[in-house]
Design a protein around this nucleic acid. Sequence first.
DNA 1: CGGCTACTTGAAGGATTTCAACGTAGGTGG
DNA 2: CCACCTACGTTGAAATCCTTCAAGTAGCCG
Lengths: 243, 243
Amino acid sequence: MVRKLEILTPMKEEDLSVLEQLEASTRKVPAGTELAVQGEPFGAVVVLRSGWAMRFKTLADGRRQITNFAIPGDVIGLYANMLVVADQSATTLTDVEIAEFPQEMMTDLFRDHPRLAAAFAWTAAREEAVLAEKVVCLGRRSAHERLSHLLLEMLRRLQMVQLTQGDRYVFPVTQELIADTLGLSAVHVNRTLSRLRAEGMIEVDGPVIHVKRVSELTDAADFDDLYLYSQRMPEGMRSRLAS
Amino acid sequence: MVRKLEILTPMKEEDLSVLEQLEASTRKVPAGTELAVQGEPFGAVVVLRSGWAMRFKTLADGRRQITNFAIPGDVIGLYANMLVVADQSATTLTDVEIAEFPQEMMTDLFRDHPRLAAAFAWTAAREEAVLAEKVVCLGRRSAHERLSHLLLEMLRRLQMVQLTQGDRYVFPVTQELIADTLGLSAVHVNRTLSRLRAEGMIEVDGPVIHVKRVSELTDAADFDDLYLYSQRMPEGMRSRLAS
DNA sequence: CGGCTACTTGAAGGATTTCAACGTAGGTGG
DNA sequence: CCACCTACGTTGAAATCCTTCAAGTAGCCG
């Protein structure tokens, strides 16, 4: 996480040490643990150090919609923690290592460490952009496009944290979970995956996804990683923060 | 906007005067004006004083997905302005009055007015919650549920800024725009609206929506306004900010 | 009045869901 | 060590929701 933030904004010694402190105490948690429950107060802000988690909302009748997968380096509900009760649930998908800090620390951050607060705000902006892209996917893309888009998004995000080998990555997610991510049925996800395999776009070996034709798939999904913004802040903002 | 923020966090004289300054210079802009264009740098942060606007993303082949409607008091792309280029476009739907401030002012805010920065962060958290709810709508709700949900969401949001008369409000949006919001075709939106009318849930008179059976519609849509959070910050955070 | 835009309605087609059955692998207990 | 169980993946067939195409109406503005 520290690495990710450093690219964005100029940091001072002082900020870095605060960050280190935030991430100091990690603990291990098994797969299937609830990190947050929709409608209940938040415990703490969670930073994922290793492993996978997901955030989701459920409807009264049990339908479920996954809003995001969290991978190492992600903060789970960075800003959502400012709400009185959680608007979403979060569960670990694999065994994970997490670091936690109390939500009040966010407030202290605003008061005492404006550069860090701005860096977190930048992160929140990116989270919002990712959500907006999901809205577009679900609203206006076909099943084939949605699945292609998801596989490419995960590839890019995992590349950013060096968790890929070539265009291969471990995706520890069942087809039913993919269905709940893409707003489809598990059956249709299965068929669409088969089609992507038949088209030679991907290869699947257990939980390992190998994207064989990145550029063709990028075209097919109209995938544009602009929204993942690995970029910096605008210069004007950087320089003002530095002072 | 000032009223909305005041509920959230304790403000001091100093903060309020900054806010007033931000909103000082308003200007009028006609319907159909582009406030931001996807892929181009942002101009300024825009606060909507009166009228309606929308934010949307377009795909390469022209498909469009509206991500949100902006109503008076809303800030358009509060945090999106921290990105180098806009991830979404924004256009006015009616004649509007807007106040603008340069994006660098956001950075100054973090440095010099932590309470305001925290209040804005809270607003961003709420925006994120709204987006997440849209993901659920598009992924897991039927056309009938989506439309019901949208009509109720607009009712609640407009109530918050006193722009309703009873359960009636002006919704200056064509059926085609509703379609682009809900991920449906305009034809199907028309049929679904007819059905809601036939069921006695709503009455439509030109741009005026009258929700006749709020509670029935709320049930039918599984609408829960939790995510609109008219609530305050958690007490722990409030008190820390006050000091 | 003509032309535009928005709304409406019918009919056919398609994408996706649902239901159902079967195969496989991993884990558990007898 | 094998039988059983469960979770996940796969495939076929029928049903459904929604889209597309097409045509027609109504209101508004120059």
